[in-house]
Design a protein around this nucleic acid. Structure first.
Lengths: 339, 339
DNA sequence: TCCTCCTAGGTAATCGTTTACGCGTAAACG
DNA sequence: CGTTTACGCGTAAACGATTACCTAGGAGGA
């Protein structure tokens, strides 16, 4: 590997000039530039990110901490992040939190030790007091999926609260009168907001809320719980795709009559939601766009620009069950492409 | 952020001593060690990965290039990679190739410019001549999913060739006599090997091979092709999960009678393969283990150890269709946990 | 007593960049 | 013709760690 000094020697100029040619940070005559460029080609010189990083104190790297990349929500967000990052020549280091505060702390520490310029995360802590945790770090942080804007950390979220209401209203308008929500992990801002959206829309009709754990097992428990109700909801909204899976599998196996007689709605599109019979209606979040936006905000903060504390992206509601297949955009928003 | 010099000053020792305390590279008296440790705590000092990296020419970082993390195969492999990497205090930078040679080149270049210590990839080029491309780089490379061992690059693959044969034989033994393979992208070692496994097992019975493109659309085309055959196979093995999805969706919508009358087998477990009716049989690759193993080999190569040129991991065949649900381990192998 | 060896720890060069200064030369201006 | 301004470029000091080399003192052996 050749260094900037080799290039300088071969071109007969100083390292300063080579550096300025590379970065366009100072006027260089056409002659000299040509010499330098040629020398770089000859030696096929690639500037060392380390040397540069040490000097500028920036590796052009950001950290992305996901709960679990195996969950397609995070995978799609990540693709958005990566594509935006690459546009600006940043690379992305990925870590997992697995929804565990310990893992999350560790991940953040490691990322900072690696010299990332900023961090993107779906915070596991979101109680208003607990959230101050995130304000202590030496690099800019942007939160996605979950709101943290109370503590001065920019957040990118969706209007899933409205979308939940919209979905319930959709079926209310078609005569349904008994609604259930299988809610996610308590404490997350998404769980709270979706719960509120649900309550509002379901009132004054009869409605139930079951608190799952945001994992597959939560869906299994929900299925059992559902089967035990003397009077059952005709519309069930599941707050996350893992629980939806657990629910559908369990119903399919043990309570097929419930599966065929109730309308199921879930959040986040997955291939199977349209395969399963009956198909699930779904609230589609603009996952790719979440990633792009969050990365964009983070890069801006890294360059010390002011950014809005809260960015809300629109969901799209796709009704697939009862009685026909309709795509129903939310009011006041362009329906965003899932891309 | 405090530096090693601050620590040295506060502890009343030299930077060399601090460094040796941190890395355990030289004997240091208990007294001194205590002083240093205390000073580090006081300043909550974290060694800069950049400074260290510049000196040692290693950032303890590896690159992982996937075709598409949104494909759960790659997501699971990645989790394996990351967990193994973290054990050794390495972090992972992710890039996408999207099965495109241009993107792949770019990704590799970028990773090297970022100073990664090694690269893990599912090579897009795999023709025996073409594959020499990968031998030119200045950092160690390990290939996963696809074989590259012909050109002296260690590869981690599965015995999917045998597994394909096994699956065909399973249904042959139950009386089936007409088999089709929907093959993946031509040129990939997996496509070639699975094709061979299929040919061998299907002979001397009647059999068909349709070449898809390894993407969703390939499955759609395959469905159309299937519907046009005057005599149709009773068992169809699809070489990749995206094509399987395209196939099932299209059949479900336009040719439900084909869907219900043929046995479908696919590769790689996905939630929907068990939800759809009839459920698909599936050849399960040990994705997590692929990642762990590949990362392990790469780390060994980084530390200049010799590693085997080819590592083959066992698949597991799960029969779900026709006539009963059986889990059928391949002979000569422990069935690996999907973890 | 003298030599050797071991232990503990300091000095300073080094990794590959960026960048604050400084220095000529030549054009422009009065 | 002197003075300013601009331009083009080089010198060398950082950035934060690691590490080859050196020093000093004490223990042990002959």
């Amino acid at each position: 590997m050749s260094t900037i000094r080799d290039v300088a020697k071969r071109a007969g100029v100083s390292t300063a000039t080579v550096s300025h040619v590379i970065n366009g940070t100072r006027a260089v005559s056409g002659q000299t530039r040509l010499l330098v460029v040629q020398a770089m080609k000859d030696l096929n010189f690639v500037p060392s990110a380390l040397g540069r990083g040490l000097r500028t104190n920036s590796l052009k790297t950001i950290g992305f901490v996901a709960a679990d990349l195996t969950n397609s929500f995070f995978a799609h967000v990540f693709r958005g992040v990566e594509s935006r990052a690459r546009e600006s020549n940043y690379t992305v280091i990925v870590s997992h939190s697995d929804e565990d505060v310990g893992h999350e702390s560790e991940a953040i520490q490691n990322l900072i030790a690696k010299g990332v310029d900023g961090i993107l995360l779906a915070p596991v802590r979101s109680g208003p007091d607990d959230a101050e945790f995130y304000t202590e770090f030496s690099v800019p942080i942007v939160s996605y999926d979950r709101r943290l804007s109370a503590v001065n950390i920019p957040s990118v979220v969706t209007n899933s609260q409205d979308a939940v209401g919209e979905a319930i209203n959709f079926f209310k308008a078609r005569g349904h009168e008994r609604f259930a929500l299988i809610a996610g992990k308590q404490g997350l801002s998404t769980t709270l907001e979706r719960g509120q959206g649900f309550e509002q829309a379901a009132n004054p009709h009869r409605h139930w809320v079951f608190y799952g754990d945001s994992r597959y097992e939560g869906g299994v428990h929900a299925a059992r719980w559902l089967s035990e109700q003397p009077v059952r909801p005709s519309v069930v909204l599941v707050g996350n795709n893992l629980m939806a899976m657990g629910l559908v599998v369990t119903l399919q196996e043990h309570y097929p009559e419930i599966l065929s007689s109730t309308v199921l709605i879930t959040i986040d599109e997955e291939p199977w939601t349209s395969f399963v019979r009956p198909p699930l209606s779904v609230i589609v979040q603009p996952t790719h766009e979440i990633g792009v936006t969050a990365a964009d905000l983070l890069l801006q903060r890294i360059h010390h620009a002011e950014v809005p504390l809260l960015t809300t992206l629109p969901c799209r509601f796709v009704a697939r069950s009862d009685p026909v297949t309709v795509s129903h955009p939310l009011p006041d928003y362009e329906s965003g492409p899932a891309s």
